[in-house]
């Protein structure tokens, strides 16, 4: 970034007032992902901003209520974001699509228990920059899809602020785009994926930590809208390549599917 840190911090006020342009917002949200002080300040300033509309309350036109209530009847509420420490997802929301919801709930459970999937669709990988939709509630709302688990959030934030954070990307080109973030001092790594293909109900993605000739599983995960952000399992400090394949649900001991993307991560 070309903006000096001092001036980045000062943007909290403009940010909560939406007094930033799109580029500034994106840059500031990247900064927020790694700056606790700014995150806290943003939360506290938002609470102050939320008080201001009390002075400008105006009763809306009566037909607005009816319009909205009839419009929502046609829209299915999105399921909650899976959380490791939360109770199991509530029973199916709409009787009419019960089967579908049950399937989604089962998948969410499976995902939550075995794999820490973080900030899925909100993560946007771009060359030279990573934008995290981790923070602001309106971002989750606005982008509709995002899977966040607190513990992973924390680990991801730690990773992002690690002084020895290294960023590796797959070769630019067509197909799946992958970025690996790794901190040797923390011993953790995360992978961000874009443009993942759709897979069948009996398939999942599996990440592999490859040292020499030996692939070791680094976790199984699902994607949302072709994107996923995952904390890699196992010891990743010695990894030479991180690769992703499609495997049967539950994962395989050794890769059986074609490699979708590989990211060289040798230091």
């Amino acid at each position: 970034m070309t903006v000096e840190p001092e001036s980045v911090h000062a943007l909290t006020g403009a940010y909560v007032l939406d007094a930033v342009d799109d580029d500034e917002r994106e840059a500031f949200e990247q900064h927020l992902a790694v700056c606790n002080d700014c995150r806290e300040e943003v939360l506290s300033l938002r609470s102050a901003v939320a008080r201001m509309p009390a002075v400008s309350a105006v009763a809306p036109p009566p037909e607005l209520r009816a319009n909205i209530l009839s419009a929502i009847a046609a829209v299915r509420p999105l399921p909650p974001l899976p959380e490791e420490d939360a109770p199991p997802p509530a029973a199916p929301i709409e009787p009419s699509s019960g089967r579908h919801d049950e399937l989604a709930a089962r998948r969410a459970n499976r995902r939550a228990s075995r794999w820490r999937l973080v900030a899925a669709a909100a993560a946007v990988v771009a060359l030279g920059g990573v934008s995290w939709g981790l923070l602001a509630p309106e971002d989750l709302g606005g982008r509709e899809i995002g899977v966040i688990e607190r513990e992973s959030d924390v680990q991801l934030a730690e990773l992002m602020s690690a002084p020895d954070l290294q960023v590796y990307t797959s070769a630019a080109g067509e197909g799946v785009q992958g970025t690996v973030l790794r901190s040797d001092s923390l011993g953790t790594a995360a992978m961000l994926l874009q443009d993942l293909p759709e897979v069948g109900d009996d398939q999942e993605f599996q990440a592999w930590n490859i040292v020499g000739e030996t692939p070791e599983s680094a976790g199984v995960f699902s994607a949302a809208d072709g994107t996923a952000t995952v904390l890699l399992e196992g010891d990743v400090t010695d990894a030479e390549v991180i690769a992703v394949t499609v495997e049967p649900v539950g994962g395989s001991d050794q890769p059986t599917g074609d490699i979708l993307v590989q990211v060289p991560v040798s230091s």
């Binding site: 909205i68 909650p80 709302g141």
Partner: peptide, 10 residues
């Protein structure tokens, strides 16, 4: 409000 409805769980 449609956005609120759709994203209420989040």
């Amino acid at each position: 409000y449609l956005q609120v409805w759709q994203n209420a769980s989040r």
